[in-house]
């Protein structure tokens, strides 16, 4: 038997086909994403920090993770690295309000499904998330 710790929750976590987890320090963005993806039938859970989102994965695995590139407690890239370290393979979309090509390239290299600039989130997000929901 492997030892079970809070960091290795996967034996218990239940994969969901409708859950989308959003981490963004801005409550307005979380609400916006909730309203937007609600139209696809997604069950959207919002978290203000990367730490809170990671903790939630001990219970249920989402169909998709959406995170701001700069969260209050970590960067979006750090969040992706932590997901990888825990062996959690979940499609991850990063949001950014900074138009640097290098940041977008780094995110895509790290395996992000998409990197979306904040003013243009709506349509791009719908296009990416819809196929991930059952």
């Amino acid at each position: 038997m492997s030892t079970r710790s809070a960091e290795l929750p996967l034996d218990f976590a239940v994969p969901s086909s409708t859950l989308v987890c959003v981490a963004d320090g801005d409550a307005g963005v979380r609400e916006g994403v909730r309203a937007l993806l609600g139209t696809l039938g997604a069950d959207v859970h919002g978290y203000a920090t990367g730490g809170e989102l990671l903790a939630s994965l001990e219970v249920e695995l989402p169909a998709c993770v959406i995170a701001d590139v700069s969260l209050p407690d970590m960067s979006g890239l750090e969040l992706m690295a932590e997901l990888r370290r825990r062996g959690i393979r979940v499609p991850t979309i990063l949001l950014s309000s900074d138009a640097e090509v290098s940041g977008a390239v780094d995110a895509m290299r790290a395996g992000a499904l998409d990197f979306i600039e904040k003013p243009y989130v709506d349509r791009a997000l719908l296009n990416q998330v819809a196929p991930l929901l059952k």
């Binding site: 950014s96 138009a99 640097e100 090509v101 977008a104 390239v105 895509m108 290299r109 998409d114 990197f115 979306i116 600039e117 243009y120 791009a124």
Partner: peptide, 15 residues
């Protein structure tokens, strides 16, 4: 070679 703010195009090219 991209200009400043070509993020959506850079993302597409990476994909």
């Amino acid at each position: 070679i991209t200009g400043h703010g070509d993020v959506p195009m850079a993302v597409e090219a990476m994909q």
